[in-house]
Write a protein that binds this DNA or RNA. Structure first.
Lengths: 196, 196
DNA sequence: ACACTAAACTAATAAGCGTTAGTTTTTGAC
DNA sequence: GTCAAAAACTAACGCTTATTAGTTTAGTGT
């Protein structure tokens, strides 16, 4: 009978979605039950439906929210007049920051987007594809300017993105080595490699 | 009432596990039902239990099989007398080959190991940690021999491993660009970077 | 042809799922 | 304090799940 705490800035549905993101990250979307989610919030399962439409809707909110953040960021970056190398640098650091500060949502969006139902699955994949293509363009620009080695830009981008997706493993290390140092290591490795 | 086809070399449980790997990859472990798995094999769900112990057991077989293959490979590599740089090269190529030739099992092991029940979850994580540590040692050796730049070897290894885990995205491209070329691109990018 | 065994079948069970309906309690503005 | 709205509750439904029990069919060696 305890009520969900909320403020002017954070709606009750946001509180639910945050708790859901944490649960989905830990157990996976399909293995997480509405009953367990409710229990974590100190209420009964049916009470959730005063604030959210369905379990599927929660996942959609999480995934589309992340997609929006990344789309927003790369659009702003595209409009800026910077060198391709700098753009890639900024992009990588943004991924790292997102992973450190929005860990649960990032994890869920990365791992559970397959469970989205149409048309949201298609939308999500389109957004992803579009992001990827913008990134490919940055690499192509860099190759033309001789900033980057000639390569298969598609493969280059997918390699970087999958490396960044794995950042979730470093979430647990984020307290011991500070963010900036971690950022620098990863950016350096992805851009200039490890061979001396 | 059709029987599961099997040969002297491939047992019926292996046929089931292969079909399960394909299904689990497509829908995820929790979203895959024994009924659907049986249907894909042309039998009824309860008939599966003549060959396998449980759904959970199938996942265990998949995950421990992959863990074994990688453990085996890195142990053999450790015993070989090769330069760290060459070891890392071989390791990366092995990951790529495994992903291309054992796609379903690799995908499932990478994505669904969280659904393992104890004690298999702990075993799997220990195997993974051990593999990671062996790889860290290779990088450390390389740094001492000045093959590699000084860095945080742990971060270096985790970055490479997460990039390799994302190889599943390239499975669909594997028909257009041949394996060797893909291997070379990825090895080059991970070892020497993209900046010219 | 016969018997043994492997492997399929049908029927059913208990548990868990997301969700709805209907009701009661709590909260906040006047 | 009163009243409306928000948000909690209990009870239950319909469905799916993995799995078991018991039975029948099919394949194999003699």
């Amino acid at each position: 009978m305890s009520k969900i705490v909320s403020s002017r800035r954070i709606s009750k549905s946001d509180v639910i979605i945050s708790a859901a993101a944490a649960l989905f990250r830990e157990k996976g979307y399909r293995s997480s039950s509405m009953r367990e989610l409710a229990e974590n919030l100190g209420i009964e399962a049916p009470s959730l439906y005063n604030h959210i439409g369905s379990k599927a809707e929660i996942l959609q909110e999480i995934c589309s929210g992340i997609a929006f953040d990344f789309g927003d960021h790369i659009a702003a970056l595209d409009n800026s007049e910077q060198e391709p190398r700098k753009k890639l640098d900024v992009l990588i650091r943004f991924h790292i920051k997102m992973m450190l500060h929005n860990y649960d949502r990032m994890f869920v969006a990365n791992h559970e987007w397959r469970q989205l139902v149409e048309p949201h699955l298609t939308t999500f994949l389109q957004d992803r594809k579009s992001y990827e293509q913008r990134m490919v363009q940055i690499v192509k620009d860099g190759i033309i300017k001789k900033d980057f080695k000639a390569s298969q830009p598609q493969v280059t981008v997918l390699t970087i993105l999958s490396a960044l997706r794995g950042l979730e493993f470093w979430h647990k290390y984020s307290n011991i080595s500070n963010t900036k140092k971690l950022e620098n290591s990863i950016v350096s490795q992805l851009l200039t490699g490890i061979v001396s």
